[in-house]
Design a binder for these strands. Structure first.
Lengths: 147, 147
DNA sequence: TTCACTGCAAATGCTTTGCAGCGCC
DNA sequence: GGCGCTGCAAAGCATTTGCAGTGAA
């Protein structure tokens, strides 16, 4: 998901120009460190703006994209197609049970999933594994209203 | 994402207005029957047009969306955020192991995940469950290049 | 000094919507 | 006939990009 199939740059950071240390990149990186969940570029930009950090939306897009290309952040697609990012190696790992009608969210643990992901990745020779599991459905209340 | 091995048309849409049998809906449905893979609305529209089936793009979007709402098709998000659809109950449900550098994808089975999702949803009173599982890491080749 | 990085605004491309006419039930 | 369904064109939105100015190395 980081780099779509057709991407010619299969050899990651092979011959890419050096990266400069700018105020904007530092701000994005810092904000990601403080966030546990996935955020869209729009959300991250709003957060930065509210903090008084001046980073243009276009730059936020460019920074997050370059971080994703280097594998410094994980990328997912929200249900509505918006791209959402999260710093890798997150601390407290958990998953979400989300009501697709009212949006209610329940955090759930899944030790079984963790080991499954590790095993299946190993079987296919993958390393530096991360995973995301989202379960959608109708919460008790919305289930009742549908009836 | 796609409903596990549960009942297909589980809850017949509560109190939604009846659905009419139109040439356009039939054309979309027929086209989906003949397709094994996921297709975006744009692709489906192009296919219909090439066949001489006159269905506007807006209608294609509306029909696919209503089918998705009723659970008659599964919806996924392509890497670029485009929504892709596939008729349900066809192929086996599976998940993806994705390389975050080169984008390589390996399809994997996860019967354990299916039952786990069902169980955890039930424990919280959720119904009409669906889930998304994304596992990323570095594929064998990219793992080696990073060394 | 060099050239990657930024901001801004215009441009993309997928998806949604307002409206008026059409045709299934 | 009523009203859901269509087509068309006009938005909406997230995301990308051209360009010229700015600043890190």
């Amino acid at each position: 998901m980081s780099s779509p199939s057709s991407s010619p740059a299969a050899d990651a950071s092979a011959s890419r120009p050096p990266e400069r240390n700018t105020r904007q990149r530092a701000a994005v990186s810092r904000a990601l460190d403080e966030l546990d969940d996935f955020v869209s570029t729009q959300e991250l930009h709003r957060i930065l703006t509210e903090r008084g950090e001046r980073v243009s939306l276009a730059t936020a897009y460019r920074v997050l994209q370059s971080m994703a290309d280097d594998g410094r952040v994980d990328v997912l697609r929200a249900a509505d197609g918006e791209a959402v990012y999260r710093r890798c190696e997150v601390s407290v790992h958990h998953h979400h049970l989300v009501c697709r009608v009212c949006g209610k969210v329940v955090e759930v643990q899944a030790p079984a999933i963790e080991s499954w992901a590790e095993r299946i990745a190993a079987e296919n020779g993958f390393t530096a594994v991360e995973h995301t599991v989202e379960v959608f459905g109708l919460c008790p209340r919305c289930s009742a209203e549908r009836r």
